[in-house]
Design a protein around this nucleic acid. Structure first.
Length: 549
RNA sequence: GCCCUCGUAGCACAAUGGAUAGUGCAGCUCACUCCUAACGAGCCGAUCCAGGUUCGACUCCUGGCGAGGGCACCA
């Protein structure tokens, strides 16, 4: 419908000689202003030097003619807005589609045929997953699904850190304690904290850890490599468990250790071409003239940094995962780093760099102060999940309900905010399960599902209301919102829409008797349309939908 | 010192250069023998400061104040 209106506006503008005007068709902030609004007259009036109200009047007439029976009213308001109110028939048609299409309702085709390689969550083996990792996992999964909903084929991968100084720190502490069979992520997390502390406080330990780091790269010490292998597996098991709880499954788990060598080679080749240069024994990318940070790619010890490994990964991905587009999701503290990596990649492989984009998620900050895995005061992903499950259980102890409610609460808190913004989280107060929240959306859907389960095949009451219900006018916008959220990589747009949808449904539910009413048949169709919309919207964000609450 | 984000009610967040700046929490009313109250109806309350651009600025520009992050061998 939005497309139809856009075309009508475009044609009307062209007729006035302002075909190039950059107008928007949007949903007005207030329902009283209709179903759609456009600023086309105000934008074009500027270009043409005309009075916006007069231009709006003539545009409105053309738009009304073009849309015919789809519109009830096209009116001009304020400084020159053209407001469009759909006819009851057009609203009814949209609701019937939402009802009939089921899971297909709201699926788009904007990205049909496009293969998108998504990288997110990027765990550091040998470090526990803390709350910050939840952000990347949740946002990455939601973006993947949004693009999937827009027709793209998604291939998920995660790029874990399994070599480098941080790994050496954990292994050093494990060795010191004589551990040969690490058995929990917690144990490894503590070893990492102990190793980090020793690295700073103890000069001898500092040297040992640096040497250990070299040994890991070299890979010749069989006992060490076995411990490394086992430690990594224990860490990854913990990460996989959390991913499963969060509804994420990766097609590829890639590691630093897979890309270090190729990264070094690439930087070496780049050095010959003058893309990189030597400085104090290290190989760096001098980004100053390009406006990005200068960074070390190969250390003076000859080991590749994460930057070099990222370059290696870009090439490895091209081999393993054919794609048209690459999206990498990380915390926003890495934004500057990625600018440098992409600038360097742009010189090594312009076509790869051109289709690669970096998306930053915000930081999960605690009101109680900073977390540090070195200090050992981290809150892990599992800690938050378990706390939420406990709280959800107060209302419904069934784990089949409490778990998805907890996951929904967490995910919604993250996804409702504009991407890249930090989230302030108060571990004392924890998460709200009421008001604007995941459970609010889930509950609205549960109510609708329950209502529908009571209805019989031969619904009575064939009357129709004089005007469509407010919730219907929200439902009909779902496909546009989902498409825009995918286009702008902005899950929060869909999240706020679903909030509004749930609110409209709950108001309808509170004020209208459905079963046994004169409009029963009509209202049940609205309920089915709502349920499909909410279910599809939650699915597109990766938020689970419990059957009961 | 340089670079990047950000600053909206007591708190947490929305708002493509558009209409009376939206929502939730907290507080105060109201509503519950009726399809699930993790619900509904209402009240209270905000754009950091100073300039500028514009018919129109939370949004863009300049300066200031404040917060967070990044800036050579960590990831």
């Amino acid at each position: 419908m939005e497309e139809k209106i856009r075309t009508a506006v475009q044609d009307a503008l062209a007729h006035e000689g302002a075909g190039a005007a950059a107008f928007v068709v949007e949903r007005p902030g207030e329902a009283a202003h209709g179903d759609y609004t456009t600023n086309a007259a105000m934008v074009a009036a500027k270009q043409l030097g005309q009075n916006p109200r007069e231009l709006a009047d003539s545009l409105a007439r053309r738009i009304q003619d073009a849309l015919g029976a789809d519109v009830e009213r096209v009116s001009v308001a304020g400084p020159g807005f053209i407001n469009i109110t759909l006819s009851n028939a057009a609203v009814g048609f949209a609701i019937a589609e939402a009802d009939a299409q089921g899971e297909a309702w709201g699926k788009g085709s904007a990205l049909s045929g496009q293969r998108v390689s998504f990288e997110y969550s990027n765990p550091n083996a040998f470090k526990e997953m803390h709350v910050g990792h939840l952000m990347g996992t949740i946002v990455g999964e939601a973006l993947s699904r949004l693009l999937e909903n827009a027709g793209a084929k998604i291939i998920r991968d995660t790029f874990g850190g399994d070599v480098g100084p941080n790994v050496a720190k954990a292994l050093w502490a494990l060795k010191k304690d004589g551990v040969t069979e690490p058995d929990s992520a917690k144990q490894i997390g503590e070893a990492y904290a102990a190793g980090s502390k020793a690295y700073e406080d103890d000069a001898a330990a500092h040297e040992q850890i640096d040497a250990l780091n070299q040994d890991i790269y070299a890979g010749n010490d069989a006992a060490l490599m076995e411990l490394w292998q086992k430690g990594r597996e224990v860490s990854m098991r913990a990460f996989r468990h959390l991913w499963q709880r969060l509804g994420t499954k990766f097609d590829y788990e890639l590691f630093d250790s897979d890309t270090g060598e190729s990264g070094k080679r690439l930087v070496g080749d780049g050095l010959k071409k003058g893309i990189f240069k030597e400085s104090d024994g290290a190989i760096i990318y001098d980004g100053e003239e390009k406006g990005v940070h200068t960074m070390v790619f190969i250390t003076s010890h000859g080991t590749p940094t994460y930057e070099a490994k990222d370059l290696g990964l870009a090439f490895l991905r091209e081999e393993k995962i054919p794609n048209d587009r690459v999206i990498i999701v990380t915390g926003n503290e890495q934004t500057g780093r990625f600018k440098t990596v992409l600038a360097a990649l742009g010189e090594l492989a312009p076509n790869v760099a051109a289709k690669t984009e970096h998306v930053a998620t915000g930081f999960l900050r605690l009101t109680s102060g900073k977390m540090s895995s070195r200090e050992g005061n981290v809150i892990t992903g599992e800690d938050i999940m378990n706390d939420l499950v406990a709280r959800a259980s107060e209302k419904n102890p069934d784990p089949l309900i409490a778990e998805p409610v907890a996951v929904g609460a967490l995910k919604f808190m993250v996804l409702r905010q504009a991407p890249g913004q930090d989230i302030v989280f108060d571990p004392g107060k924890s998460l709200s399960l009421e008001g604007d929240s995941g459970p609010y959306l889930q509950y609205a859907l549960v109510r609708a599902a329950k209502l529908l389960s009571y209805s019989s095949e031969d619904a009575g009451g064939g009357e129709a209301p004089r005007e469509p219900y407010a919730v219907e006018r929200v439902i009909l916008h779902y496909p546009e919102v989902a498409a825009r959220a995918a286009r702008e990589l902005a899950p929060n747009l869909l999240a706020s829409y679903l909030l509004e949808l749930a609110s409209a449904w709950n108001a309808f539910y509170a004020s209208e008797q459905v079963l046994g009413s004169p409009e029963e048949e009509y209202k049940l169709r609205v309920a089915r349309a709502f349920a499909n919309t909410m279910a599809n919207g939650l699915h597109a964000l990766g938020i689970p939908a419990p059957e009961r609450m």
